[in-house]
Design a protein around this nucleic acid. Structure first.
Lengths: 214, 214, 214, 214
DNA sequence: AATGAATGAGTATTCATTCAT
DNA sequence: GATGAATGAATACTCATTCAT
């Protein structure tokens, strides 16, 4: 109704509290199986208060998604050495993504709602497109630099995104029982090897010990 | 209560009809947004008949999942040359999977429910595990034959599965606008390149024109 | 539809089989919780056959009630010495009733439906009225003979009926854990004592060892 | 889930209103034939509110049963002279019960569900057991005092309970068309006469004009 | 800001009964 | 007589959202 409600500091906290409780519950049970009353009970407030902070359940979810996407992107940016070559940057971004997704596993379970619920297609798609653009420009730069195989950059781009997403998924759902560090390194190298124009380049990039610590 | 109802030929047809209608609707609108009445209306029968053939909505869904998994596996088996080396077989199976999933895109949208709905975790997980075992044994054989990089076979296996799944997903959801043949070939090669012990092997396997036509 | 269908000998048997199965199930679970399909499954026949023998579920129930009532009445008649005085006859009838109801406990659980389901009020009421008339005439004869207290015969009559019914109920439902013979004797004496004009008469009647063996 | 919801004064009223409406409807049509919507419509509230106050239809019914039982017991307690002998107290309790059950005939029709619906067996049984214990201790005291015949106290106890229940039943269902006062007096005397050790005692107790006016 | 009572649209499931074969 | 597929009316319960206080 208000579009954007002006909140006091205390109000901000309350809202964040609701967002956090909701995120955890959504991740645990999924969107449909999490009732508004579950969220407010987890936060220890009355049902009516939910609608003081959020338009409705859907709005909260979208807010959650946008915020997670944003934080992931920031994390990736911080992990990538601006001075490095595109393929190294991709490796760094990949490792950072795997780590971040493992650390916020509950959050990312949410994003997979995408596949199901048409009602969220737009928010999710939008976030995905931004990410695809980020990766895409690196891939193109890598091709131009002769580091990455000269194939359809769109296909290569989705390969990178998919690899990260799927390994994270299997890790999160417990099918892949390995250490996060090991996983991040493996996925980073895997991406490099798939993209690299030849073995030599791949080996060189993979050998580089300077990987982001985030 | 009945476990397995004995059906006449006509009954079998009716049941299949309901399964088909349901599959289409599930794919279109998702599981939750497809009501039982939608299914029976699509089939042109009365509501009560649904419960003659199925315990409930959930049971129908599970039956659907199991059947699709089964058909995919058969398709893969047919596509793989029993006489070929493991890596070639993986390439054949990968291509066949991409094609099959593209052809039955509506069906496979369903399988992604997995991520969301805990109530189906077991059926879906089970199907996934069977598949993982299939791929895993090929990967191991490939490593033994020196064709595949000597790394953790479990990680490699999930890389293959994830690559196929994600490319199919992006293709199905329209983010990847390419021809199925092109996609299948690309994914097949991509998998080979990621797994192959070195460039030479990868090139040799990828150059082989003898790919399954299914 | 047919009102009265003409049945072959085999048909009669089939019908009786359905009646027996139904009686047992009704007694176990009550009328509402016994489905037609439970009855036919218990009898090992198809659902449709039920409606060959009975108008509907309600009709079967009523038929059951009438038949049980009839048998009880016959049993009582056989137990009562035609030559005996009214109070002795009441004692004999009472004992016989208790025994019969214990023997057919499952049947009699059914009759208590009366209290609940308005739809059966008439059949049940009707049966009860016949019984009340039987007992009533004995009570009146007893009063005339000076054996029974000179009070409102209607009240006394319902006292007899109620005493039998309630003791049988408590026995059937397991609240009263005594031997049937003991119970029958006790109830018989109890009725006599309540009705008898004085202690002497009561003692005399109760002392009489000649009780029906049915 | 909530166990016991904390209610405001207004809430208490609303809940009682629903209980009252439900009691009336249950009595009129029986439990099964009273739909939740009938109850809320009678109370003039929305369907959903029912589930704010009660877990479900069954829970409301059980609450109703417990409350009626409680009130009956209080009524009996008030009617019995603490200084009187056990047999007199039984007579007083009996008369009070008959009056109370006549006054709340609609309520007591409900309790007879017991016979049918296994789902309520426990609540009802429990209430009945408490009552049986109350009566039982008086019976035993009467035997010890030489006022009551020296027979199995359990059998005698159920005789008292059954007599009251059955007379009330016949009265409620219209088979016994007498004045409540007359009925109460009659049942009281009848119980006394059945229990009393001899005529003299019975006559003495019955002659006592000091009966409870409740 | 906060409460919690009130609303009501939405849906899976049951089961007696019918009927073509 | 017998089968079992087909029908459809009937109903309890959920939960997002609103609103008076």
């Amino acid at each position: 109704m208000d579009g954007e409600r002006r909140l006091t500091a205390q109000g901000q906290e309350r809202k964040q509290q609701l967002l956090d409780c909701a995120a955890e519950l959504f991740a645990e049970r999924g969107y449909a199986d999490t009732r508004v009353i579950d969220i407010v009970e987890a936060a220890g407030v009355a049902k009516g208060l939910f609608y003081w902070y959020f338009e409705n359940k859907e709005a909260l979810f979208k807010e959650l998604v946008v915020s997670i996407r944003l934080r992931l992107r920031q994390h990736q940016a911080e992990a990538m050495d601006p001075a490095a070559d595109p393929l190294t940057r991709l490796r760094q971004g990949t490792e950072a993504s795997v780590r971040f997704m493992a650390r916020h596993a509950t959050f990312f379970a949410l994003l997979e709602v995408e596949n199901l619920d048409r009602q969220f297609a737009d928010v999710l798609r939008n976030g995905g497109d931004v990410h695809a653009a980020d990766v895409g420009s690196l891939v193109r730069a890598g091709i131009d630099a002769g580091l990455i195989r000269d194939e359809d950059p769109v296909l290569l781009t989705f390969g990178v995104i998919g690899t990260v997403a799927y390994y994270s998924h299997f890790h999160r759902t417990g099918r892949l029982r390995v250490d996060v560090d090991e996983l991040a390194t493996f996925v980073g190298r895997s991406v490099v090897r798939t993209l690299a124009a030849d073995d030599e380049i791949a080996d060189a990039i993979c050998a580089d010990p300077a990987r982001a610590a985030v």
